[in-house]
Design a binder for these strands. Structure first.
Length: 607
RNA sequence: GGGGGUGUAGCUCAGUUGGUUAGAGCGCCAGCCUGUCACGCUGGAGGCCGCCGGUUCGAGUCCGGUCACCCUCGCCA
């Protein structure tokens, strides 16, 4: 530990002393993790970020030191000075890195007392998340959380070094920008100097980084905070961090290669895992066909098989009506699972299917004689039954789960079941990493509410060169030059090659139902910039929070964020969001339509 | 906005069919203890059973509502 100031409170950290420090006189500072008072001798486990060390206050210690040690309580901040001694034979602690030694205390100073903590940061039992978030400073004292944030710091360092070595320039972009009604809901900030006008916090620095390319910066990178006012999930926060990247004079391959090298470095340095390049690439269409999802977990098989052709002769009403209305019959085969799933288990799977939007779920078990059994088996007809058996390559004892519905619904249903079964049946190693690209996304998808075309990625995505003509003739089949990075079934990043000419950009705006005037008003600066010498460019954004979660094998994004928000986007520690003075509102020219809550009526947990 | 789960001591939880004074472990406080490391032993304090209402002779337990937290669908270009 280097001295950072002239007032040296400590000579070493709590985690660094070893037997090579024996007989040295040291001073440690930290938090009292535990006190074991044996009257004549007191042991204090002193803890800091670097580790734990045992302080011994024996009968030889000065009386006032003994007294102070006896007074010390959990989480008090103390400094202890003494000689590094070897622990007596039989009293070493192999569980501690410093377990060979102890500090024989000659002086002890209480730097700060502490109230009894709401929970013990050193305890094995993890408190409920509400308690952890309310007392986040205590939660962050826990070794797990300290390791998580350390991991995050290391990953961000790897990212920064990687892009620095490749000549990328870190440029900051504004947090106060203009609202764009497309995409996610914006967080708004009222303008004091222009009443009735609002800034929006960035959903991503998308347009700014494109303008940096047009300005000639060539290679841009930023660790960028992004804000989206949408509902939360275990892997979603209203404010999150992206590693934002943009490059000029590149095609998709140039961008993905840069990221692939980063994936390899990160996996090697963090997990000591070797990832071979190039990463597998699946097209979006292939993903939907084989896995029913655009970010499939490829750590296991359980692929979807299309049975539409095999079942078209069937009189079974469920299959027939699905196909007649333009849908599909598709299924997955769960090998050897027939016996593992009782009627009750299958009811649960059916409920999951219904939850995913299906009308029901067809399940079939292949018996020893090679015949399908199950409530609808007799409705199939022998030809169709045999077709299904062949198509699925089913063996006696196998379970088939079949969904007959629109293509979209079968995707959703079978994806849900696949994900559930993969985990439940332990079909993969939880700690393994599978990284791949999903490419050739469609440019557009129908917006279900309005029926209009909506950009699948964002409105600045370049159409696939081969599909340029389809942009007008057949937008539904026009592919985009887009690529998503998928790790273990989680979207860990996504990017596109951008439109770099004004005419194409205007055409895409038109298709999205953004009128000429509206486009001019909202994106005029982009259109002007595009017609002022815009280089071909493209980029990607990586979700840093998700990367840390995935590389740290954690289940919640909140565990890799120092001060996260709850599902209702509130901060239990500070009480944000909170009420403001009417005076503040008046200055901003803002009035709320809900009367201010009386004191004590707020949701705030702050006393 | 919809579905599901949880809410009992500071923390983690148990609490039977609705029935006496709501329990345990950890923590806290006091005492004892010279080699512990989840120290040990003895004693003690600590409860708006989330909140509001209802049913009942009687509610932690049943019913309705509500709030918070978590998971999830919608949503997240």
């Amino acid at each position: 530990m280097r001295k950072v100031s002239r007032i040296v409170l400590r000579t070493h950290t709590c985690g660094e002393l070893r037997s090579n420090h024996l007989e040295e006189n040291v001073t440690l500072c930290g938090w009292v993790d535990r006190v074991r008072d044996h009257k004549g001798v007191i042991f204090i486990d002193l803890r800091d970020r670097w580790g734990k060390a045992q302080i011994v206050i024996g009968p030889d210690a000065p009386a006032e030191v003994m007294e102070r040690a006896r007074a010390a309580r959990s989480e008090w901040v103390i400094s202890a000075t003494g000689r590094v001694g070897r622990r007596p034979e039989g009293t070493t602690n192999p569980k501690l890195l410093t377990g060979e030694i102890e500090v024989v205390c000659s002086d002890l100073e209480i730097l700060n007392e502490a109230d009894t903590p709401a929970f013990q940061p050193g305890a094995k039992e993890l408190p409920g998340e509400e308690v952890r978030l309310k007392n986040r400073w205590l939660d962050l004292r826990r070794t797990d959380m300290q390791n998580n944030l350390l991991l995050r710091s290391r990953i961000v360092k790897i990212m920064r070094d990687h892009f620095d070595e490749l000549g990328f320039i870190d440029v900051e972009t504004p947090m106060l920008g203009r609202s764009t009604p497309e995409g996610a809901r914006d967080y708004l900030v009222p303008s004091r100097l222009d009443h009735g006008a609002f800034f929006a916090l960035p959903q991503s620095p998308q347009l700014y980084k494109q303008l940096l390319m047009i300005a000639g910066f060539d290679r841009y990178v930023q660790v960028a905070k992004c804000f989206r006012d949408e509902d939360l999930r275990a892997d979603r926060q209203p404010e999150f961090t992206q590693l934002d990247v943009e490059m000029s004079f590149v095609d998709a391959n140039d961008v993905t290669s840069v990221i692939e090298d980063l994936v390899v470095k990160t996996a090697k340095k963090i997990l000591d895992v070797d990832i071979s390049l190039p990463l597998p690439q699946l097209t979006w269409a292939e993903c939907m066909d084989r896995y029913g999802h655009d970010a499939p977990d490829l750590r296991f098989g359980l692929e979807i098989i299309d049975l539409t052709e095999d079942t078209k002769e069937s009189d079974f009403r469920v299959f027939k009506s699905a196909v007649e209305s333009g849908g599909k019959v598709r299924g997955i085969l769960v090998s050897g699972a027939a016996e593992k799933f009782s009627r009750k288990d299958l009811d649960v799977l059916t409920a999951m299917a219904v939850d995913a939007g299906a009308k029901g779920l067809v399940w079939l078990k292949l018996d020893a004689a090679g015949l399908w059994t199950g409530p609808v088996a007799k409705n199939l007809g022998s030809v169709v039954a045999e077709n299904i058996r062949t198509a699925l390559d089913a063996k006696p004892g196998d379970l088939a789960l079949i969904s007959a519905d629109s293509f979209d619904v079968t995707c959703k249903t079978l994806h849900t079941l696949r994900k559930h079964l993969g985990k439940k049946l332990n079909m993969y190693d939880q700690s393994s990493m599978h990284v791949s690209w999903v490419v050739d996304f469609p440019m557009f998808a129908r917006d279900e509410e309005s029926g209009n075309w909506a950009a699948m990625h964002h409105p600045f995505t370049a159409p696939h060169p081969e599909d340029l003509e389809k942009l007008t003739s057949n937008p539904a089949e026009c592919r985009a030059v887009a690529y998503d990075l998928v790790i273990n079934g989680s979207e860990a990043g996504g990017g596109t090659i951008r439109i770099h000419d004004r005419a194409t950009q205007q055409k895409v705006f038109e298709l999205l139902g953004i009128s000429h005037d509206h486009a001019q008003e909202r994106f005029g600066f982009l259109l002007d910039a595009l017609s002022s010498g815009a280089p071909p460019h493209g980029g990607i954004a990586l979700g840093i929070d998700r990367w840390v979660m995935l590389f740290g094998q954690l289940d919640s994004i909140r565990d890799v964020i120092a001060f996260p928000k709850t599902q209702r986007a509130s901060d239990l520690m500070t009480g944000a969001p909170g009420q403001v003075d009417t005076k503040q509102l008046a200055e901003l020219g803002v009035r709320t339509i809900i009367p201010p809550k009386a004191a004590g009526e707020t949701n705030s947990n702050v006393k």
